[in-house]
């Protein structure tokens, strides 16, 4: 098999499996691990993958837009699990802001189950509907123009209102995360709102299901800062967790609790 053919096969395997070990590839393609290592170096220089200890992960892939009902069906269990993990980081009496989207819906439900006294600001009508029946939650919706497609509010009116608020914790649910391209999304309508949610929070929490890793969307929200909190589900490959930890980014999952969880809210 020619090198080029092998490169294609490696890339296709990665596209399906998202991460793979050198040993696995060597076995599958019936070549030595040394050969695989050279292949991986080659492919990395082309930006198609990222080498990690023991193997490789898929490099930033541009995602395409799917509507809300579609996204509600993707990775349901993963989103529900990471939402439970994230909900544990919220304390009684907290003042928080919540993003919109399918993960945010799971997060709102997880929060409701915790039965905490909270003040919650959001621009998502779906999240608001979930929390409005909870007596212990002071709810605030920024209002503005209603996007029927996403069931959110947007536009200058929404941004103006959000600029008047300040919260202890902002929980964002963007579409993609990658070491190279940071946090990104692709809905230009909500991008300024997400930026505003980041600006008005003392502490920033990103809720990202494992399928969003090493992908990028059209609009970059921010670079990955060690000061932000990143929460994902147990389906996230250990390879990614190690890769990110090398860059000082700690990803919190059910199995990897927040290293500073016992710190006072607002200190980080």
């Amino acid at each position: 098999m020619l090198a080029k053919e092998r490169h294609n096969r490696i890339y296709n395997i990665l596209k399906t499996k998202r991460s793979v070990s050198t040993l696995e590839l060597a076995t599958l393609l019936a070549v030595s691990t040394e050969t695989i290592r050279r292949d991986l170096l080659d492919l990395e220089s082309k930006g198609l993958l990222q080498r990690v200890y023991g193997g490789a992960v898929l490099a930033g892939e541009v995602i395409s837009y799917h509507d809300l009902p579609h996204r509600m069906e993707i990775s349901k269990e993963a989103k529900a699990e990471l939402s439970e993990t994230a909900a544990m980081l919220v304390n009684d009496g907290d003042i928080i802001a919540i993003d919109a989207g399918s993960t945010a819906v799971h997060f709102a439900e997880a929060l409701k189950k915790r039965d905490l006294m909270l003040t919650v600001a959001t621009y998502s009508l779906t999240v608001a509907n979930i929390l409005s029946s909870s007596e212990k939650i002071n709810l605030m919706i920024c209002g503005g123009l209603l996007s029927k497609r996403e069931n959110n509010f947007y536009g200058q009116l929404a941004i103006d209102t959000l600029q008047k608020l300040h919260v202890q914790k902002s929980f964002l649910c963007p579409s993609a995360i990658s070491l190279q391209n940071g946090i990104s999304d692709f809905e230009h309508e909500f991008y300024p709102i997400q930026k505003q949610l980041m600006a008005c929070g003392d502490n920033i929490y990103f809720l990202l299901s494992s399928d969003k890793f090493e992908r990028h969307g059209l609009l970059k929200l921010c670079d990955l800062e060690p000061g932000y909190h990143y929460i994902s589900d147990s389906g996230l490959d250990e390879a990614y967790i190690k890769l990110y930890r090398e860059k000082n980014i700690h990803i919190i999952t059910k199995n990897h609790p927040d290293p500073v969880q016992n710190a006072e809210p607002g200190n980080r």
Partner: peptide
């Protein structure tokens, strides 16, 4: 139908929003 919500603090007893944030938005329109 284009819908604009003058958001603000949710008042559960009347199922609507109120307060200065709501007023601010209304006054811009």
């Amino acid at each position: 139908i284009r819908t604009i919500l003058a958001g603000g603090i949710y008042m559960p007893q009347e199922n609507c929003f109120g307060g200065h944030l709501t007023l601010d938005m209304i006054r811009q329109l």
